[in-house]
């Protein structure tokens, strides 16, 4: 199923170290586990707070600089919290040619935020990403876990409305295919 849990308390609080302990436990002393450790920590907390990175360094036996270096190298790691739904607008080649810029502009317009920002109600964060591998249906946008294809600036409003209700009350996926 596409939409499993969309409860409002999706992410753990950075003061609660239990999820992190569990993750570190699981990877133990596995060789080269730093990237998966950070990935799972981000999944649990929504982003990589400095406190979390320091804990990882201390508990899993890395230099903090090493942890921070990896976290800032890869595009996927975020050092700031995100909203309930992360909107990723694809700016890969096919989507660029198909008008991805207008899609980002329209989402930004509708939400009143710029790329990289989160709405004041913490509902949406807007990001640009590289190819999502659904180029044949360009332009593409992913909201939370759902991929939306063949977008037009005119279809954005409807897509966003679908997620805009109170936390966790995402409307059921209608027949919104063209």
């Amino acid at each position: 199923m596409e939409h499993e849990c969309t409860c409002s308390t999706k992410f753990a609080d950075v003061d609660d170290l239990r999820p992190l302990e569990e993750i570190i436990e699981r990877y133990g002393s596995e060789k080269g586990a730093l990237i998966p450790l950070l990935q799972e920590a981000q999944d649990a907390y929504g982003y990589l707070d400095e406190k979390i990175m320091r804990e990882i360094a201390k508990r899993a036996g890395y230099q903090f600089s090493q942890v921070f270096g990896v976290a800032t190298f890869f595009a996927q790691f975020r050092l700031k919290p995100i909203g309930e739904y992360l909107i990723k607008v694809c700016h890969g080649t096919a989507c660029h040619v198909a008008g991805a810029t207008q899609i980002t502009d329209e989402v930004a317009n509708q939400l009143g935020i710029k790329e990289g920002e989160t709405t004041p109600d913490n509902k949406f964060t807007l990001e640009s990403v590289m190819c999502l591998g659904a180029c044949a249906l360009a332009p593409i946008m992913v909201v939370g876990d759902d991929t939306h294809g063949k977008l037009k600036p005119t279809s954005i409003k409807k897509v966003l409305k679908h997620y805009a209700g109170p936390s966790g009350s995402q409307a059921s996926e209608g027949d919104d295919a063209e």
Binding site: G32, I35, P36, G69, V70, F73, F74, A75, Q76, M130
Partner: peptide, 24 residues
């Protein structure tokens, strides 16, 4: 191994660095 979003990691030596848990 799940990538972490870096185009250069498609290059083989960068990919190996990333599998080893380093910057790619």
């Amino acid at each position: 191994k799940k990538g972490a979003g870096a185009f250069v990691c498609g290059e083989e030596t960068a990919m190996m660095a990333s599998i080893e848990g380093q910057r790619g």
